[in-house]
Design a protein around this nucleic acid. Structure first.
Length: 112
DNA sequence: AGATTGACTGCAT
DNA sequence: CATGCAGCCAATC
């Protein structure tokens, strides 16, 4: 179970762990923004939050789908196209989208 | 070690 | 309200 000969990951909670912890604090049926997570994580930028989400492995316990941009919309991935699974999971949790595909942060935004 | 990119944000135009 | 630019931290080349 060695991680490999490469540099092992930090044994103690780092920026990534804080970001994941902040996202885990988001209750179902609510959404938060990258900037908010970055602020809760402390000392990191929204861009880094997105970077951390991209590094999430499949099956992770982190509700990455509850993280949207400040516009309340789902951000596009490297592919240049948002992941349809994200919107699908949010709708399954009761989050509603408007005609523009945006979420009302005043209602579903967290913290309230 | 420097340059570039990235699931972003806020302000100015 | 749409577009452009700069700031930001970390990872990758």
């Amino acid at each position: 179970m060695n991680e490999g000969s490469s540099r092992d990951a930090p044994p103690e909670p780092g920026v990534y762990a804080r970001i994941y912890a902040a996202v885990l604090e988001v209750p179902a049926g609510r959404v938060t923004t990258y900037g908010r997570v970055a602020r809760l994580a402390g000392g990191c930028t929204p861009l880094l939050v997105g970077f951390a989400m991209a590094a999430l492995p499949a099956g992770s316990a982190v509700p990455w789908h509850r993280v949207v941009n400040s516009k309340g919309a789902i951000s596009a991935r490297r592919e240049g196209r948002p992941d349809p699974r994200q919107r699908r999971k949010l709708q399954a949790e009761g989050v509603r989208f408007d005609a523009g595909g945006r979420i009302d942060l005043a209602v579903f935004g967290w913290p309230d």
